[in-house]
Nucleic acid binder design. Structure first.
Lengths: 116, 116
DNA sequence: CTGTATCCGGCACGATACTG
DNA sequence: CAGTATCGTGCCGGATACAG
């Protein structure tokens, strides 16, 4: 994705651009998509998204959290346990994510369009 | 958007990522969105997208064309006239674009998008 | 397990000037 | 009008090491 605009920018008068600014970043949409299925732990996300590094995963998760799209829950345990899930706002992105998935399946004709 | 992955990458097994790779770039989605309304000329797009430079507009348009999302028609006239419009594949993105617009309007609107 | 800290390269993008 | 050409750069994102 584009780096889109740095921070939400109302001047453009285009809500699409503002929406884009929240989901820019190389992994955000994929993260959100994975979370559609339900709560996931840090390493679970890591495994589900091949190629992402700890740094980027952490960074993108933090941004998503800051934008109120996901919820981060930390359990004070000896082996740390952190769970990520979609916030209400994040869940409202479902139509977009599914539309994107559907489009990808339809127009990129991947025979293995396995439901990730 | 993220720079996504450079070129379509099948290995991830996620059609969403492949779809994303086609719409990465800072202005692509906005361009596509503007073209939903119909054919537009180069400078018309330029005016509709404040902040975009000639270079970037040209570049993004070329990528969109290469990915088969838009159609570029050149009229051999003395004042050059180039028209851009969505291809069939591009038009198939309409649900995604509208979903994104709807989400933006709903969640980023002037009033708080509380949506508990 | 779930992160932070640091270093660093590349390319995405911008600014400007020029052209058919 | 609709682009190229060229140059410069921010910062995104990868690699690696360290930490609670």
């Amino acid at each position: 994705m584009p780096r889109a605009v740095k921070k939400a920018q109302t001047s453009t008068g285009c809500s699409v651009e503002r929406a884009l600014s929240l989901i820019d970043g190389k992994w955000k949409i994929v993260i959100l998509y994975k979370l559609l299925r339900g709560t996931l732990r840090f390493n679970e996300l890591r495994r589900l998204i091949p190629g992402v590094t700890q740094r980027m995963l952490t960074h993108q998760l933090r941004e998503l959290e800051a934008d109120g799209l996901i919820v981060r829950v930390v359990y004070a345990q000896v082996p740390p346990r952190v769970e990520y899930s979609l916030s209400t706002r994040g869940q409202s992105l479902e139509p977009v994510l599914l539309a994107l998935k559907h489009w990808g399946d339809t127009n990129l004709s991947s025979r293995e369009a396995e439901a990730a």
